[in-house]
Design a protein around this nucleic acid. Structure first.
Lengths: 217, 217
DNA sequence: GTCTATACAACGATAGAC
DNA sequence: GTCTATCGTTGTATAGAC
């Protein structure tokens, strides 16, 4: 866990700030053994837990891991996906949602539910239960997921279609989606747990659509 | 924490309203009360976990505890409330829902959400998180809650108003209610977490109402 | 030689200080 | 308003593994 910067020591002529001289790292591929990816993951776990999703910065995480911030992009594709990897989510919600948003806004809910059902049916309930468990157990996990859900959902989905009250709508959408996941995959309440996708979509999508674009008081 | 039958303790100061409750008048010899109650709880935990809500019987639970089956009624008010106590639920869902059902069926959802908000706001998110945690962690807990939710919800709420597909409707209602609980009290997503009751009711009740009495595909 | 992990620099966006 | 600091991200050159 201890993200020990590998501290190669010498060289690095004073480019710019002669102060501190924090991490003179060589360029190029590191000598074998240094697992940058794992170090980034470990550093990200600590930072996300301590400061939340928004509070943690890619730069600090990279510094803690002793590597360049660009490594986050290289290994994970960005802050969002790094977070997904930290929480060990089965899929990257941002990516999934992003490619489901384009299209008729009045049918967005159908596409969202349909896609989520595909993903969840493929991975089963285990990852969902794991996430739920850690969220219920650790306040830090709840905070991380809260900020992440708010940010990603609002930015990538709700803002694309919702006329107003975007944060509230995002929370409501989250409640319906999360509740469906719990009841179908963790609690396994029948007949909802075994219903085919068309049935679930027909039942849930209209309600989700109201949260997205319908009238709110 | 859990809503249990009134503790027929030594100094039960009578509130004026005489309840139809089978309030045990403490006459005669005082049993090793707390002991019986605890033994029943322990026995019920085992039985519910092993056989589920439906599979476990009051008779067997009482036998395992070494007491008369009537003690379940005495100490907990019935199988349902015993189960509630075992899960350490903040309230007895059966009781709460039962007294909210009478009235305009088309406004049932408003009454349900309103009442749940009162209860949850009073107890805070801790009990909810505890239930979620055990449900996510232990398959037995998930099974118990599943059967309980199906049975009680279908029997006491959905059957009272829903025209068809009662089990499916019950599952859908469960998903919305549970999701709301998670997002508002465990994840604490704003502004939903701090929204006043009227706002939440206005936002969620119409969706819940559709699950209860609206058209399903 | 190729391939890839790496560091550095710089860009557009955004939030806060002045 | 402008200025500044900082964020996440991208482009590119380079060093080491193969």
């Amino acid at each position: 866990m201890a993200a020990t910067a590998d501290d190669p020591g010498p060289s690095r002529a004073g480019t710019g700030t002669a102060q501190g001289d924090p991490a003179p790292r060589r360029r190029g591929r590191r000598p074998g053994g240094a697992d940058t990816r794992a170090q980034l993951l470990a550093a990200a776990r600590v930072e996300f837990a301590e400061r939340g999703y928004d509070g943690a910065t890619v730069r600090v995480i990279a510094e803690r891991a002793g590597v360049d911030p660009a490594m986050v992009n290289h290994w994970f594709g960005g802050k969002e996906s790094l977070f997904t990897a930290v929480l060990d989510l089965p899929v990257d919600p941002g990516a999934v949602l992003a490619d489901v948003v384009p299209g008729d806004p009045e049918r967005l809910a159908e596409r969202i539910i349909g896609r989520l059902l595909e993903v969840w049916d493929a991975t089963g309930g285990a990852p969902l239960a794991a996430v739920l468990q850690s969220v219920a157990a650790h306040d830090a996990a709840a905070r991380m997921l809260r900020e992440f859900v708010s940010r990603v959902l609002v930015a990538k989905v709700v803002s694309a279609v919702a006329p107003d009250q975007r944060e509230l709508r995002a929370g409501l959408c989250g409640s319906q989606v999360l509740g469906l996941a719990v009841v179908r995959y963790v609690l396994k309440v029948e007949p909802l747990a075994s219903a085919d996708h068309a049935t679930v979509i027909g039942a849930v999508a209209p309600n989700l659509q109201r949260y997205l674009t319908g009238p709110l008081p």
